[in-house]
């Protein structure tokens, strides 16, 4: 069993805590899997399993990395759905996963939450990049998203997460997210956010302050193991703002950004990414 496979075995509670609601009888249950391995020369994809709304496509790449695009095969996640993406780069593999379009959370046949679990695992000397298009929380939707990330000590990792609260001129749905990252078995980052009614205070001056686009960029790289001062981007007022700063538990930088629009958010995160890559 590879270290990546061992790391996959760890489980954490879903976002929101407490027992998970049972799936709606009409909800979709799907688990798609992408496993990348290194054969001594290049990265191969011994497992590429499409399921439910996730259609996986191997993409052209330069060099020794593997690239996989996720193409939405049906409207999801809807209330009552239980969706899982299991993405692993085993030792020395290099894998980049993207999505072809934004993920749109919509109201389903039930007011029950949709459950969307993304498990990301990177083994020793592996390099995993998760760079999806934004997640949109449409009016009336109810989504609980959980990222569970397990990284070996020498793994490199990039995660970009963008959330848009509501489509144009609509109130957002209810979006509860958790990101839990362990590196070498120790907690590196644990954050839980909850936006949209009925969450108390979510739109107030201590949480989003009226912004409708919020995102993060996490870069973990053993080569980053130097102290860095935080980098401030934007003004943090009406036009949005971001900070890029080192985490305590490892060679990792996290950018946190809020913005009025998705394009302003992407600009802030791209700028943060460029700073993070400057050694």
């Amino acid at each position: 069993m590879s270290s990546a496979a061992r790391l996959v075995a760890g489980r954490v509670p879903a976002a929101g805590g407490g027992p998970e609601p049972a799936g709606h009888p009409h909800g979709v249950r799907a688990t798609a899997r992408i496993h990348a391995a290194h054969n001594g020369r290049v990265t191969t994809l011994p497992q590429l399993r499409s399921d439910g709304p996730f259609h996986l496509r191997r993409m052209r790449t330069d060099g020794n990395a593997a690239r996989v695009g996720i193409i939405g095969a049906m409207s999801a996640p809807l209330g009552g759905d239980r969706l899982t993406l299991d993405i692993a780069a085993e030792d020395r593999a290099e894998l980049e996963v993207t999505t072809a379009a934004a993920t749109l959370a919509l109201r389903g046949p039930t007011t029950e939450a949709a459950i969307y679990d993304v498990r990301l695992t990177a083994g020793e000397h592996a390099h995993l990049r998760w760079l999806p298009q934004p997640l949109i929380s449409a009016a009336g939707s109810n989504l609980r998203q959980t990222y569970t990330v397990e990284l070996a000590a020498t793994a490199r990792f990039v995660l970009r997460e963008e959330q848009l609260l509501g489509r144009a001129d609509e109130e957002p749905g209810h979006l509860v997210s958790r990101i839990l990252v362990h590196r070498a078995g120790r907690p590196l980052l644990d954050q839980h956010t909850a936006y949209g009614a009925p969450e108390p205070g979510w739109d107030g001056p201590a949480v989003l302050g009226g912004h409708r686009a919020v995102g993060q960029l996490l870069v973990v790289d053993p080569r980053l193991d130097v102290p860095r001062d935080p980098v401030l981007l934007g003004e943090g007022t009406k036009d949005g703002g971001a900070v890029l700063a080192p985490l305590e538990g490892g060679p990792a930088l996290l950018a946190t950004a809020v913005a009025p629009t998705s394009s302003a958010l992407r600009e802030l995160l791209d700028e943060a990414h460029a700073h993070a890559l400057t050694h």
């Binding site: 958790r178 989003l208 401030l232 900070v243 700063a245 946190t256 809020v258």
Partner: peptide, 12 residues
């Protein structure tokens, strides 16, 4: 692990 993006950004 409830968190707030604005509190993190404005603290820095």
């Amino acid at each position: 692990s409830a968190s707030s993006p604005l509190l993190d950004i404005t603290a820095e």
